[in-house]
Amino acid sequence: MEKFTTHTGRAVPLRRSNVDTDQIIPAHWLKKVTRSGFEDGLFEAWRKDESFVLNQPERKGATVLVAGPEFGTGSSREHAVWALQNYGFQAVISSRFADIFRGNSLKNGLLTVVLPQETVERLWALTEADPTAEITVDLEAREVRAEGVTAPFELDDNVRWRLLNGLDDISITLQNEGDIAAFEAKRPSYKPRTQPVA
């Protein structure tokens, strides 16, 4: 995973709630067996509408998505995170994220930042009025900054530490191999195994 410390970039204001994972990346894209090449599938249906915010020329190269509540609701597809990253987004700001999407994003170094809806509204107003306005997402300071906005955000210390250092979860867990083996040794015999039964 790439390290995330701080990022500054232009924004895409997405005034929609309940942006579900089927909108972020439609199911027919999920047939790919790689983690890359999903950028053209991002918001595929909405992008067919020329007026959709992502299609506006001044949003080209924007890296911070500012969305409505319940962003990422729906399926567990990590492809939604990959699609956002493949397209170029480094951070997503919303007042509420769906749990699985949030977990997936933080495991891939896409920083999902929870801010109060009123702050999201101010960021929308700012970036709609001025497409060149930049937003800074500072993980070290746990703060989002933009013109006229300084907003602290919360993120679990352990998650933050992993992101700041770009640490791989599996290697960390395998340092506790002894604990896992000890737990396995206590497994009751009534618990099922998947091997075919005769």
Partner: peptide
């Protein structure tokens, strides 16, 4: 019982565990 993303699928395949909030 809960759904997980692909990074967690890999984590469970490798360790049979998950760190969970």
């Amino acid at each position: 019982a809960f759904g997980i993303g692909t990074s967690q699928v890999e984590h469970v395949l490798a360790t049979q565990t998950l760190p969970l909030a």
